[in-house]
Amino acid sequence: MGRGTAVITGASSGIGAATARRLAAEGYDVIAAARRVERLEQLAAGTPGIRPFALDVTSAESVAAFGAEFGEQDVAVLVNNAGGALGVDPVESADPADWQRMYETNVLGVLRVTQALLPALERGAGGHVLVTGSIAGHVVYEGGGGYTAAKHAASAVVQTLRLELNGRPVRVTEIAPGMVRTEEFSLVRLGGDKTAADRVYAGVAEPLTADDIADCVAFAATRPAHVNIDLLVVKPLAQAAPHKIDRR
């Protein structure tokens, strides 16, 4: 018996793609949404139970079209995963355009998609909103001002939404990963500099993988309906904090 429909944003790579595969394996009918449709089609071709759909969470028009397509359905799970980091500049020299782009994806993207699908999440037995946050949403570090500001804001959205939906059949969860090695996160953050991106993980025996985070999402989503995981913080054993990492 299927578990219902699960919508995942930012599903074209990394944590989003891994989560799409995992929730499909758990019995969900997965709507994998992202801008790069060709990547989604490849994902869907390799995994039964996944349907690709074009979505840009920074575009009100794109989200409105997405809501028109799925907002009248019964959605069991929404994973707001679209996001990311840009740059490692200090506050005094950071590019405000990078900050704005991070806020658009990590915060306003969550707002837009959640608003569009909330009616669908309240139908039937109720639904579950999950947000891929970060330990950067709870701890700051030098060179991370724009990203930590955006992820702190995303965490605030999650906590506020949970309060506002109290008494309604929608669970709200933040998954907050620490160091996760994916094919794109650090590469995008560092402007395509592969050497610098590899340096982020240098000496770390086992950073988390996208599958590790997908496992956390699946755990939270498959708890009984009366059980809400508010916040799940997950880091590799080698990482005690953003600034405290065992590099062998």
Results as ranks from 00 to 15, higher is better:
Met1Thr: 12
Met1Gln: 05
Arg3Phe: 09
Gly4Lys: 08
Thr5Pro: 00
Ala6Pro: 01
Val7Cys: 02
Ile8Thr: 05
Gly14Phe: 10
Ala18Cys: 01
Ala18Leu: 12
Thr19Leu: 07
Arg21Thr: 09
Arg21Tyr: 03
Tyr28Leu: 03
Arg36Cys: 08
Glu38Asn: 13
Ala44Trp: 10
Ala44Gly: 08
Ala45Asn: 13
Gly46Cys: 15
Thr47Trp: 05
Gly49Pro: 06
Pro52Ile: 11
Phe53Pro: 02
Ala68Cys: 04
Glu72Asp: 14
Asp74Ile: 06
Asn80Glu: 14
Ala85Gly: 15
Gly87Leu: 13
Pro90Trp: 02
Glu92Ala: 07
Glu92Asp: 13
Pro96His: 10
Ala97Trp: 05
Ala97His: 12
Trp99Pro: 01
Gln100Cys: 00
Met102Lys: 04
Met102Asn: 01
Tyr103Met: 14
Asn106Gln: 05
Asn106Leu: 07
Val107Leu: 13
Val107Gly: 01
Val110Ala: 15
Ala116Cys: 00
Leu117Asn: 06
Leu121Asp: 00
Gly124Arg: 00
His128Gln: 14
His128Thr: 14
Gly133Cys: 00
Ser134Leu: 02
Ile135Ala: 01
Ala136Met: 00
Ala136Thr: 00
Val140Lys: 00
Glu142Trp: 11
Glu142Gln: 11
Gly143Glu: 09
Gly144Asp: 01
Gly145Val: 04
Gly146Leu: 04
Gly146Ile: 02
Tyr147Ser: 06
Ala149Trp: 03
Ala150His: 07
Ala153His: 10
Ala156Trp: 08
Val158Ala: 10
Leu161Asn: 01
Arg162Phe: 08
Arg162Tyr: 06
Leu165Arg: 07
Asn166Gly: 05
Gly167Asn: 08
Val172Phe: 12
Thr173Ser: 12
Thr173Glu: 10
Glu174Gly: 01
Ile175Pro: 02
Ile175Tyr: 03
Ala176Tyr: 01
Gly178Met: 06
Val180Thr: 14
Leu187Glu: 07
Gly191Phe: 09
Gly192Cys: 02
Lys194Arg: 15
Thr195Asp: 12
Ala196Gly: 06
Ala197Tyr: 06
Val200Met: 12
Tyr201Gly: 09
Gly203Ile: 04
Leu208Val: 14
Asp212Cys: 04
Ile213Gln: 10
Phe219Arg: 06
Ala220Asp: 12
Ala221Phe: 04
Pro224Glu: 09
Leu232Trp: 05
Leu232Ser: 03
Leu232Val: 02
Val233Phe: 01
Gln239Pro: 05
Pro242Met: 08
Ile245Leu: 12
Arg247Glu: 12
Arg248Gly: 11
